[in-house]
Computed example of a mutant assay.
Amino acid sequence: MHQVMIHPASYETVRGAIDHAFDLFPQDLKNKQVVIKPNVLRGSKAAEGIVTHPAVLAAVVEKVQTMGPASIVVGDNPGLFSYGANEAAFEQTGLMAAARGTYRNIGLDAVSLPFHPDFVETVNVSRAIVDADIVISLPKFKTHGLTVMTGAIKNSYGILPGAQKARLHKLAGNPSRFHDLVVEVFRLRVPDLFIVDAVVGMEGNGPASPELREIGLILAGDNAVAVDAVMAAMMGLDPSRLRFLRRAAEAGLGAWNLEEIRIDGNLAQLDNFKLPPLGGEAIQDNAAVQEMLESKTRLTPRADPDGCTACGTCVEQCPAQALSMPEDLPQVDMGLCVTCFCCQEICPEKAMVLQ
């Protein structure tokens, strides 16, 4: 039987909840490579509630540091609004300081992995995620206009660098297929522990809604399906109505039935919690959002001849081998490019631009 922790907390007292989470879900971190992945949708102020709060990240980093890991990496690939601005997003949100020197731009290096052929043959995943012995996922308690809620499973969408996210959004074509897609990305590297920032949650049309909700809780578990099922119940939503949870359960990734989940704490439904439409209409039928997604899929990297020094770093690091250097200027083969934009992230001269 799965177990999910529901523990009272404020951002000032969050360390107690983090300690309890590690007591309930022990992790052997000694001499291990540990990646801690917050939800960093985009650059924003911590008070906007769009990203995992810095106090939660800081408490997890402090806890992990006491457990003897060989290394700690804090990183994420921010969402559609922050391509090429990884450091800036972490600085603006306060997560850079909360990482306590462990931040790394995990978008700089990626590895190609086989994917579900119904979508694409391969995707690029941040190498730090693939190489990690332990991955700790720190989702935010939020709604999402396409998947209704975003939690433990959806947070793994950030293991994909660059515009792959927008490209896969477009390839999915409709909300149902996007639910399936999210599960396929999650399966690439299932995290070992999930700690959800539900001190202040988000309702309405997330994942960047201005409608915040004081909840005062930290959730935790070592099974994403169970954690998301508890989140759904707290939002007043029957977990069985979420396609991505049903799909994950069918794939053997966990159980969403609350009768199969042991609760450490008090599971209570939040009064009058505002949910987006269950069919994904909040994003699927939003012309502005769809145009933004479309514009991101049209972006292509190009070397600026005035800034490029022909150092070859982008060619060496391109995980899709889509770059070559025929005449002292990198050239992109868009037939091979997977729009991960690692070249833009890694260029020491910032000479790779997106057009």
Rank of each mutant, 00 (worst) to 15 (best):
H2K: 10
Q3N: 07
V4P: 07
H7E: 09
S10K: 00
E12G: 01
T13F: 00
A21C: 09
K30P: 00
N31W: 08
K32T: 06
Q33H: 12
Q33A: 13
I36F: 15
I36R: 12
R42I: 07
A47S: 15
P54H: 15
A55R: 01
V56R: 01
A58S: 15
V60D: 02
E62S: 02
V64E: 01
Q65E: 13
T66N: 00
P69V: 02
N77E: 09
E87H: 12
A89G: 09
F90A: 14
M96G: 09
A99V: 09
T102G: 10
I106S: 03
G107V: 13
A110R: 10
A110T: 12
P114L: 12
F115L: 10
P117Y: 11
S126A: 03
R127S: 14
R127G: 02
I129F: 14
D131W: 04
I134T: 14
S137R: 04
K140N: 05
K142V: 01
T147L: 05
V148R: 14
M149G: 02
M149H: 10
K154T: 03
Y157M: 07
A163Q: 09
K165F: 04
A166T: 07
A166R: 04
R167P: 00
R167V: 10
L168W: 09
P175F: 11
R177G: 03
R177W: 03
D180A: 12
D180L: 07
D192R: 06
A198F: 06
G201C: 11
M202F: 02
A208H: 11
S209P: 06
S209N: 08
P210Q: 03
R213K: 15
E214P: 13
L217R: 15
I218R: 04
A220M: 03
V225E: 01
V225I: 05
A226W: 06
V230T: 01
A232F: 07
S240N: 11
E260W: 12
D264F: 08
G265T: 11
N266V: 07
A268K: 13
A268F: 01
L270H: 05
N272K: 13
N272D: 09
L275C: 13
L278T: 09
E281D: 12
I283S: 08
M292T: 06
M292C: 07
E294A: 15
E294S: 14
R298L: 13
A303H: 11
D306K: 15
V315C: 14
V315N: 01
C318H: 08
S324W: 00
E327K: 08
Q331Y: 06
V332Y: 08
V332D: 10
V332S: 03
C343P: 05
C343S: 11
Q344K: 08
Q344T: 02
